[in-house]
Amino acid sequence: MRGIERTTVGKVPDRPATEVESYTLHTGTGFAITAWSYGATLVEVLAADRDGRYANVCLRLPDLDAYLDRARNPYVGATVGRYCRCVAGAEFTLDGVRHRLDRNEGPHHVHGGAEGLDRHVWSAEASRDGDALEVRFTATSPDGDQGYPGELTVCTSYRAEPDGTLVIAHRASTTAPTVVGLTNHAFWNLAGEGTIDDHRLRLTATEAVRFDADLVPLPGPPEAVPGTARDFTAERALAGVRVDNCFLVPGEEELAALTHPASGRVMRVSTDQPAVGVYTGDWFSGRPRGGICLETGAFPDAPNRPDYPSVRLDPGETHRHRTVHRFGVADAG
């Protein structure tokens, strides 16, 4: 089967655009993805193992009600923003003006606030581009939303290619100077079931952010990871390994390789972003270690850190973010 399948999965109470749409992109090779308009959320990615059997390798929740319930849904598969990760003290200064954000994680602001982009119902359209299929979600965050200045228009797209390539892209524009940092919060499990303990991970990153107990970056430069518990420069098994950190991306070549030896599935990741958050899902109450997040994007607390790459966005500019996931199989043994 090749084509675009659109269905309705339910309604969100008390929202202007209440109907939630599901789009499945069937590439014709078996590789397929499904995304929903609620939170511009990636719900399924069907990838083959070495024997040609397909499984969903993107952790999903059972139904729309589960996605609507924050207690059961730690941003599973969602587009996160306006600012992913943390803003320390839930405030930042821009052009001499102090902006106070929604405090949704103790004294801090995390992943865009209690009503971030992951809680919006986005508009959607899907199309073909040669052999590739794409669905594009668009949302508008009004001036002052969660404390952010400027009206922000955001587009998140998912592009599926027959060779097993998934491209996730974000674009944003603003009506006033603001800060932007978007990411996708998928939990990956290449077995399609169980935990990630039988997975292996390699990162090209050689530096990581140093955090305090609240996962707020400490002053000073990043930490070199070779020889530490955060060293994944050589492929490592994830069994017994807990990670919740942010690594520096050394370039736009391959950033990460996640493998599942039993099935042979491999996911290779590259991005144009400066950082990647790696989280092994240990505190996901519904399914601990059911998947691993590889959240490409901006540095945590960059709005308050002039030593980090800038996250400022001005009118007339376009924020762009592109991450590529390539699915394949490794040789047995």
Rank of each mutant, 00 (worst) to 15 (best):
A257F: 05
D272N: 14
R287W: 06
P309D: 15
G281A: 04
E295Q: 09
R322G: 01
R305G: 01
P261D: 10
Y308E: 13
S310Q: 07
P315D: 06
L294H: 12
R305F: 00
G277Q: 15
L258A: 04
S310N: 05
A256D: 09
D282C: 07
Y308H: 09
A262H: 11
E295S: 14
R268S: 08
P274G: 01
T259N: 04
C293A: 15
V278L: 14
H319Y: 13
D272C: 08
S263N: 07
A262W: 00
A302Y: 05
T318M: 13
G286L: 02
T280S: 13
R312P: 14
H260D: 05
R268H: 01
S263Y: 05
V311I: 07
G316T: 03
G290S: 12
T318K: 07
I292C: 11
R326W: 01
G328D: 00
R268Y: 08
A298H: 15
D314P: 13
T271S: 10
S310E: 04
C293Y: 12
G328N: 03
T296V: 07
F327I: 00
R265K: 05
T323S: 15
A275V: 09
R289K: 03
R305I: 00
H319E: 08
R326D: 01
L258Q: 00
G297T: 03
A257N: 05
P303G: 12
R326S: 09
P303F: 13
G281Y: 08
P300I: 07
T296L: 03
G328Q: 05
G290Y: 05
R320K: 02
P306S: 10
T296S: 01
P303R: 14
R312Q: 08
T280H: 14
T280N: 10
D314K: 05
R268E: 03
Q273C: 06
R312C: 14
D307R: 14
Y279I: 15
D272L: 11
G316Q: 02
P288N: 09
P274Y: 13
T259S: 10
T296A: 04
P261Y: 02
G281D: 02
T271Y: 03
P261E: 02
C293E: 12
D307N: 08
G290H: 07
D272I: 03
R312A: 11
W283P: 09
G291K: 13
L294C: 09
V269H: 03
G291V: 04
A262T: 10
V276K: 01
I292M: 15
D282A: 15
P288A: 06
I292A: 11
R326Y: 01
G286I: 00
F284A: 12
T318N: 05
F284I: 04
H319L: 09
D314G: 06
P315W: 09
T318I: 11
G316H: 01
Y308V: 02
V311P: 11
L313V: 15
M267G: 04
V311R: 12
H260Y: 04
T318D: 03
D301K: 00
G290N: 03
A262N: 06
D307L: 06
M267A: 09
T271W: 01
T259P: 02
V276C: 12
R320D: 08
L258H: 00
A302H: 05
H321N: 04
R322H: 14
A262V: 11
Y279K: 14
